[in-house]
Amino acid sequence: MGRILSRLIVPGLVLAAGVASVIYGAKHHVVPVEEEQEIEVSLAPPPMPDAPEGFPGDPGFPGGFDGPPGMFPPSFMELPPHLATVKQKIIVTNEQPESTIVFEVTIGGVALLETGKLRRTYHGDIPSLCPT
């Protein structure tokens, strides 16, 4: 019995190390990965300037704007413009589980930057099934 146990020690240790490695990799090993994301940013319109005193648009202007037909009031009398929406690229860092990194490397989806950080190489659809 003791001989059998002694024979089992090495493969048992190897097996235990493998199981522990898989469990740690699957459950606890997370890797920070930078990702470029495109976000929409709403820009607030610039504050409307007050109408110069005595000009059309000035609440104190007598009779309000009274231009000829086809003529529009000056800009400071128009309604405020809609909020401007622009697309902006930002870098966010996500903690990715190792299994996700395994998938990402199969498509060449992660690269090591010179800074030592990991960066996702694509945005949206996966780039290719064959990175090499």
Partner: peptide, 14 residues
């Protein structure tokens, strides 16, 4: 990527 491959290595060990 300078990462330790726990999952791959664990699979091979098992």
């Amino acid at each position: 990527l300078h990462l330790f491959p726990f999952l791959a290595l664990g699979t091979l060990l098992i």
